[in-house]
Structure formats: C-alpha cells, structure tokens
Design a protein around this nucleic acid. Structure first.
Lengths: 195, 195
DNA sequence: GAGTTAACGCAACTGGAGTTGTCTTTGGAA
DNA sequence: TTCCAAAGACAACTCCAGTTGCGTTAACTC
C-alpha cells in the first residue's frame, strides 16, 4: 500500500504525526470518539490533508493497524506447551485490560466490523499473529507433547477465540481463569487429535 | 425497560412499525446503512418520534434485540452430543450466511461494540442462547457421554467461539468443516475434563 | 362523554462532518 | 540552482444527522 511518490521529508512527518495522533485519540476516546477533525487538530495537520490521504476514520485506523501488525510481539517460552499457550491467551486477555492498549485494540476490532478496508488490515494483522503464536504449538510438537498431525494455527485460534467471544460478542467479563481454561481446552482437543 | 404509560393503540402500532422497519433496513443495508431517518420514513413514523423514544440508531437496535432474544430457537436433538453440538454450531454459522438473517445478526454484534445499551441487550441475548444450547450438553451428561462435572454453558461458549472469532475478529471465511471442528474440539475438551 | 395529558406530527433550526477550488510550500530530478 | 509537480494549507461551502418549540391527536381516567 501507500505508493507515495514523495516518501521523504514533510510527507513522512505528516504521516507520522497523523498516525501518532490517531493512536492517542483512540486511546483517549475510543473508536466512537475518533473523528478526522480531532486527529487533524492534534497532529497539527490540516483536516483536508487528512481527508485526502486517509479518506475517513476507517482509513486512519487501517493505516495504524498496518503499523501494529509489523510490531513484534513477545511469544512466551516457558518450556511446556501448557505454559506457552496459556501465556499467549493471557497476553491477549490482559492486553484488553490495559488502559493504554485496550481501547486501541478494541477500536481496531470495532472498525473492522464496519469498514472492509479496516477488515482487510485486521485480517492481515491476525494472520501475522497466528503465525507467531503457532510457534509455541510447533515447539510442543517437536518436544513430543502433541501429535505431529496438529494444525498449529488452528490450535491458536481455538485457544484465543473464547476470550474475544466473551469480550466482543457475549459481552461477559473474562477472568484469568477463563483464559487458562480456554488454552487448556484447545490443548486437550489437540491432544485428542481433533485439531 | 420500556415503562410506557400508554401501551395501547397508537403507541403500540408505532412501536411495531418502527421495529419492523428497523429489521428491514438492517437486512437491506446492514448496520452501516442504518439511519434513524430511513427507519422513520419506512415506518411512516415521524423522525422526531423515533428520536424521542429510541434516541439513536443504537437504541433501535437494542430494542430489536430484545425482541430477538425472546424468540425460541430450534435446539437440535440428534441423539448424540456430537450431533447436537455440531448442529448448534452449524446453526450459528449458517445463520450468518443467510442473506436475510446474516446482516441483521452482524449488525447486532457491531452495534454492541459501540453502544453500552446494545451491549447489555446482546449480553442478555447470549445469556438466553447459552442456556438453551447448554441443553444438548446436559442431555449428553445424562446419557453418560460426558462427565457430570462439565460446565454445560462453557462447553457451548468454547464450541461457538471460533465461529464468531473467524467472522468478526480475524475476518476469515468459516466453512462447515470449521464449524464441525470447533464443536468437536469443545467436546474433546469436555471429555478430557477441562471444561 | 368530557377533561387531561402522554405521545405523535410538523417545520424550522443548529452544528459538525465531509467536500471543493485555489493558493502555497517543498521534495526530488535535471 | 533551477524548475516542476506532488502534497499540504486555507477558506468557503454543502449536506445531513440530530434538536427544539409548538401545535395536534388520541389513550386513559373519572
């Protein structure tokens, strides 16, 4: 994306300013409170510029999302699949509890439900996340803790799904125990050979 | 909710007209395309009235959601837990593929992410759904297919979660096989005693 | 069946999101 | 250095979601 003919200097500064402003606004006011005008004012960039380059709030979010997708994320390494997978799920859960990251992450999910552009960006984001997280499952297979037939990415999906389901669909609280149980369930299914 | 001092006659007609118009608009244009003005015009009710009684688009959705929560839904009865749980998950999956129900259901999920009011309504909705669906698990326990210690509602959650996760979070397609696998995974975990 | 008032209809208004046309700045190439 | 075009700034405008004040209708009460 972003086929800019002038990547240097002012354009780059503007882009960074807008991205940072987007994240800051998102953290403060969430997706509902995100407006192009506020982002423009906060970044010091004129609103017409933001409209022309990003088009809308969804565009802003899609752009910020691409940034986030490239950021590395700390895959746990406790020595056992149980510990690692629990760690991954707990990382997800606690991320949404964080007053800084929580609103931003939630905004991403919300935006993707309304904008195909943001949906594509979020899809790519999770594609990357699944790949990274699947590592803990693959290590488990290498250690002989899991059958070689397991679909590592699918195990990750099944493990984290209940957390997202509770948060964004059923709108129930998610405790640490809930997260652990979800990880354990995915693991049990993998051991039983259904994943 | 809805402490109406004049539940009869005109007020009731207005309420029904608006509810139906909301569902119709939702089915046609989805959550993004839902506006108070369109609902007002379609229902033949003046927009001021809609604004005063429902407040906003989210209010309209929350109201429609309460209706949906009370509607019974066909819990499968195939004779085995496998069949029943697969049936439940497949019912969820196919529901979102349905050109009629799909957009409406998706709109509910989307609205709940932006409005506490809709979130509460959706929470109640899933509370009811979980209760009804848990029946298939309880029957499995009675038949001796599952240990008596299982948390029936939790099994349901883990079973359907991957479908919602794929659809609304990771934005991946969900095949029938994916749905079956999710049901099987929850079942395997239940048999292993982790749910 | 007459009075009361909750609920609805109507029209005019407000505010802010998004657009358009034009001028100015500046990055990059010759 | 010079030049040109891409990208940004600015102001003025459009348009529509949401509001307000007031008149009208029709449920409920006695």
């Amino acid at each position: 994306m972003e086929v800019t003919k002038r990547p240097g200097g002012r354009s780059a500064r503007v882009r960074d300013a807008v991205r940072n402003a987007t994240l800051a606004e998102l953290a403060e006011h969430g997706f509902r409170g995100l407006t192009v005008e506020n982002v423009a004012e906060r970044s010091g960039v004129h609103k017409t510029t933001v409209y022309r380059r990003w088009g809308s709030v969804e565009g802003l979010i899609a752009d910020a999302l691409e940034l986030a997708a490239h950021e590395p994320w700390p895959v746990p390494d406790t020595g056992t699949v149980e510990g690692d997978l629990r760690g991954v799920v707990e990382l997800v859960r606690s991320g949404f509890e964080d007053p800084e990251l929580g609103p931003v992450s939630s905004a991403f999910v919300a935006a993707a439900m309304q904008s195909p552009e943001a949906a594509r960006a979020l899809h790519a984001f999770f594609e990357a996340r699944h790949d990274q997280s699947a590592q803990v499952v693959r290590r488990g297979v290498e250690r002989g803790e899991l059958p070689v037939t397991v679909d590592a990415r699918e195990v990750v999906r099944v493990a984290v799904a209940p957390v997202y389901y509770r948060l964004f669909v059923a709108h129930e609280p998610v405790s640490r125990e809930d997260a652990d149980r979800a990880a354990d369930a995915a693991l049990a299914a993998a051991r039983a050979g259904v994943l």
